[in-house]
Each structure stands twice: as structure tokens, then as C-alpha cells.
């Protein structure tokens, strides 16, 4: 199998690491080679964050470069726009419609690009979902990451049981039911 690349982007604190681990744990059960890459430390504090998931027969570089991502899973609308250059020709962006204002917008130096999703749709295949509303419906706004993983799961050729198993191994037992619901809402969206 040729290497497939999924880039997960968002704002530090939104739980992108958990999403990448959820996908990674689902993938290893298929027996393919998997690499995940994360960034810890200062960038986690409300900044733009990126994690990478790559899988295939043999994965070398853990990074996804410009023009290489089969999927970009974005937790925030502006971040989807920022990372568009990483999308492979013919790739798909799955994005949350939520806006989180960055500090230069909060301080009034720059404006939030209100039309970012429309602009994106003119350039790429985009699936936009209000993941925050679905997460709240599942019981917690923090479950945005699992809702979006549920949306992505529709595009990946893995059995439902594999995802359920991955949820069990990745999520603390206390929050398992909530996250199962969040995943289902994403998958059925």
C-alpha cells in the first residue's frame, strides 16, 4: 500500500494529539506501518498546532510536506486555510466550521478571514462540519476532536469495530460513553 498522509491541524488545547492517537491505534490493528508526529512544549499554548499521521507498507519521514496530505483534518476554519498548501492535488479537507480568534485578531491588528471556508471550497474538496455543536450534543464541547475523527473515519477504509476498539484503548474509561457518542455523531454526520 502506498503511504497515506493525514494532517491534523488546530489550536493548542483542542485535543489534536488525542485525535492522532485515536487514528494511530486504529491503524496498527490493520498491520500496516504507522508513524505519528506531534509537537509539545511552547506551541501547545493556544498556538497553531499540527500533528501528522502516516501509514502504508513502510513509512519513512514522520513529516507531511507541502502538497503531500491526502486529508487535512482541521479543528478550526482559519487553520484549514493556513494549511491548504500541504494538501495533495485531489486531497480532501475535513474542517470544523468553528472560529477561534488568534491574538492578532483579538488585539485588532488583523481581521479574521470570514469567508475562509468559501475561499477554500473554490480551491479544494472541502467537507465542513459544525463539530462544536455535535460535541455539545454528545455532552461536552471538549469532544470536538472525537467528532472530527468520526467524520474522517467515513473516508478511511476501516471497520467500525476497529474504531470502537481504538476508542477503548485511547480514551479514559470515565469518558468512553461520551466519546462513543461523539464519534458516532461525527461518523453519521
Amino acid at each position: 500500500m502506498k503511504t497515506k498522509s493525514i494532517m491534523i491541524v488546530g489550536v493548542g488545547g483542542q485535543g489534536t494529539l488525542l485525535a492522532s492517537r485515536l487514528i494511530g491505534n486504529a491503524l496498527i490493528s490493520t498491520g500496516c506501518d504507522v508513524k505519528l508526529s506531534e509537537v509539545h512544549g511552547m506551541s501547545q499554548r493556544g498556538g497553531s498546532v499540527v500533528t501528522y499521521v502516516k501509514y502504508g507498507d513502510a513509512v519513512h519521514s514522520p513529516l507531511i510536506d507541502l502538497g503531500e496530505a491526502d486529508y487535512i483534518l482541521s479543528f478550526e476554519a482559519l487553520e484549514a486555510g493556513r494549511f491548504l498548501p500541504y494538501l495533495k492535488q485531489g486531497g480532501t479537507i475535513i474542517t470544523n466550521t468553528q472560529h477561534i480568534l488568534p491574538m492578532p485578531v483579538i488585539t485588532g491588528q488583523m481581521a479574521y478571514p470570514e469567508n475562509v471556508l468559501d475561499d477554500l471550497k473554490a480551491k479544494a474538496d472541502v467537507i465542513a462540519v459544525d463539530a462544536l455543536a455535535l460535541a455539545e450534543q454528545a455532552g461536552s464541547p471538549k469532544a470536538v476532536n472525537v467528532v472530527l475523527t468520526g467524520v474522517l473515519s467515513k473516508a478511511m477504509d476501516l471497520d467500525e469495530a476497529v474504531w470502537q476498539q481504538s476508542l477503548e484503548t485511547t480514551v479514559p474509561p470515565k469518558f468512553l460513553e461520551l466519546n462513543r457518542k461523539a464519534f458516532r455523531l461525527g461518523r453519521e454526520s
Binding site: G13, R45, G46, G47, S48, L66, M103, P113, D119, K123
Partner: peptide
């Protein structure tokens, strides 16, 4: 050759890390 890559025309605001 590098993979083809497209971007939005508009300049997007940066998102630096901030105090929580």
C-alpha cells in the same frame, strides 16, 4: 520535482502561542 501545492490569496493572521 516538488509536489504541487495551492494556497489562498489572502494573507491570514498568524496564531502565536499565548498564556492560557
Amino acid at each position: 520535482a516538488l509536489p504541487e501545492s495551492v494556497k489562498l490569496e489572502e494573507q491570514l493572521p498568524v496564531r502565536p502561542p499565548v498564556l492560557c
